[in-house]
Computed example of a mutant assay.
Amino acid sequence: MDLPERVTEICVRCLLKVALSKEESEKTQKEVEMALLALSCIELYNGVENELYLNEIKEIIQYHQKCGNLTPFAYQSAWLFLIYRSFYDEDLVAAVVNELHFVEDARRELGDLSKRVDRKRKEEENEKRRKETKEELLLIRWLRMLVIEKRGGRRGG
């Protein structure tokens, strides 16, 4: 094993150790998210053996499926790390499909994301309407004041 592969192996082990943390503090969750993001960026062909990460990444995904401890971004990063390595490995494909139920998870995640996007759009539209309504109300108040002033001006003048 050459030096870059050895360094990558060490990094993968360290990142997996961080990502395996089950502590739920905000700081730890950020560290887990960053570790999983870094793992998902490691190139496909870099000499990292399946045995080095398969059990750990499966444990991370299965724990999230059970407890929901990861942010959506961290969870997607864990899947990316695994999926990128499953292209040419039938055992990994079987694990992804049969043990980890990727299709069900992906469908659920996409549904949740779609709902959040729709909800955010509706909130933005409602906020825009509220702002328009506030602006309209202010405009109407100013117009009323002008009408009152004009009427008062006629009466007094």
Rank of each mutant, 00 (worst) to 15 (best):
R13N: 12
L82P: 01
A95S: 13
R6H: 12
K131I: 13
R13Q: 11
V32P: 02
V117G: 13
C41V: 03
E109T: 10
S77I: 02
K131T: 10
V32F: 07
N126H: 13
W79I: 06
K128I: 05
E51T: 10
L80D: 14
D118R: 10
C11A: 15
E90Q: 12
T133P: 00
N46Y: 06
V32W: 02
D89Y: 02
F102E: 02
H64A: 13
R119E: 15
M1A: 13
L92A: 03
A78G: 09
E125F: 05
E51L: 07
N50C: 09
E24T: 13
A35G: 03
V96G: 00
V48G: 01
V97P: 01
A35S: 14
D118K: 12
T28L: 02
A94H: 10
A106Y: 11
L16Y: 02
L54K: 12
E31L: 15
E9Y: 07
F102A: 09
M1H: 01
V12N: 03
N98L: 07
E109S: 04
T8E: 02
L70T: 14
T71W: 01
Q65D: 12
G68S: 11
E23K: 14
L39C: 04
L36Q: 05
F102K: 05
I60V: 14
N50V: 02
E104H: 04
A19G: 11
L16P: 03
R13M: 02
E127Y: 10
S77H: 10
C41D: 10
D89M: 04
L3M: 06
D112W: 07
L15V: 08
R129A: 11
E104R: 06
D105P: 02
Y63T: 14
M1E: 09
I60H: 00
F81Y: 09
D118F: 13
K128E: 09
L82N: 07
A94P: 00
E26W: 08
G111A: 11
A38M: 08
A74H: 04
G111V: 02
E104I: 08
Y53F: 15
E127F: 12
D2H: 07
S86G: 04
K66S: 12
I42K: 08
S86L: 01
S21T: 07
Y63R: 12
C11D: 13
N55T: 09
V96F: 05
E90G: 10
L52I: 12
I83N: 00
K128V: 02
L3I: 15
R119T: 13
N46R: 15
K122Q: 09
R107G: 00
D112F: 05
F87K: 13
H64W: 12
K131Y: 09
V32C: 05
I61V: 14
A106K: 08
C41I: 09
W79N: 00
